[in-house]
């Protein structure tokens, strides 16, 4: 069940930024309690609102996003889609590099730099990911992950309009990444801010196109789709923050099968 990053994401970051700046103040308070991803309760105090936004996103997905993603997949052959995503990812390199450095991860910063140099030149402005074949595999970084590496918890779960599953921390990170992006300043100077929007939209459509079957399968097999997506999002972010090296799986205590009272089960409660 391979999961594509942020399956629902498509949309614009612009208007969110103001809201997110305020959110950071809140998350500073929240982070103290949620240093470990396992927040008390379900860590979703806005669940009612989140479920509503989730439904709206699903409706928008059904009406617009998914059909466009399917069209995109039908019209543009696989090599073309691969070139599109490689090109867009290459453009994101400066933001990834900044986060590598902020996380103090020098090997990864070197890797990102090498990838950017190789793919921008030999990869013909990034449309071919030749660096990956030369032993420089791609990795994702964003400011939400950086905050996670710095020890900040997610704050609480948040479903963003259009962007989909997120959290206070990650939504704020999205805003910071946007402001870090040199491309934004270039676009602003040359009056081509629409390009930024187009890039985000194409990224979203491409991500959605790659996750059609996976998401269908998750939805089909879920009893509570919202709760499943929330769980998957959190685990995926946790895994990304640890760069795939999950330190240890949560403890599964052994049960004595002949003990009907199961007092050990108390260990399992997560509050």
């Amino acid at each position: 069940m391979p999961l594509t990053k942020s399956p629902f994401s498509i949309g614009k970051r612009f208007r969110l930024v103001g809201v997110l700046a305020v959110s950071l103040l809140l998350s500073a308070c929240a982070s103290t309690t949620a240093g470990n991803e396992e927040a008390p309760g379900n860590g979703d105090p806005l669940e009612g609102l989140n479920r509503m936004v989730f439904s709206i996103n699903l409706a928008a997905d059904f009406v617009i996003v998914r059909p466009v993603a399917e069209l995109y997949r039908t019209v543009i052959p696989a090599p073309g889609r691969k070139a599109v995503v490689a090109f867009l990812r290459n453009l994101e390199s400066p933001v990834v590099l900044a986060n590598d450095i902020l996380q103090g991860n020098i090997p990864r910063a070197g890797n990102t730099t090498a990838r950017f140099l190789i793919n921008s030149t030999l990869g013909l402005a990034g449309i071919f990911d030749v660096a990956a074949k030369m032993g420089f595999p791609r990795h994702s970084e964003d400011f939400g992950q950086t905050l996670g590496v710095w020890g900040m918890g997610e704050g609480f779960y948040l479903v963003l309009p259009a962007f989909g599953p997120s959290s206070l921390r990650d939504a704020f990170g999205l805003g910071v990444d946007y402001y870090m992006d040199p491309l934004r300043y270039w676009a602003k100077d040359t009056d081509q801010e629409r390009l930024m929007l187009a890039r985000t939209a194409v990224r979203g459509i491409d991500a959605r196109a790659r996750s059609i079957e996976t998401l269908d399968e998750i939805e089909r097999s879920s009893i509570d789709f919202y709760a499943t997506v929330r769980s998957l999002y959190r685990q995926q972010r946790q895994s990304e923050i640890h760069n795939g090296e999950v330190p240890s799986l949560p403890v599964l205590p052994d049960f004595s099968l002949d003990d009907p009272d199961d007092d050990e089960t108390a260990l399992l409660s997560d509050d």
Partner: peptide, 25 residues
Amino acid sequence: IIDVVVEGISMVITQRDQFASVIER
């Protein structure tokens, strides 16, 4: 086997979170 973790996503945790949500609601 007591858990399968695919790309950092645990089958046990995913199902546990989902079941808890169903029951809580």
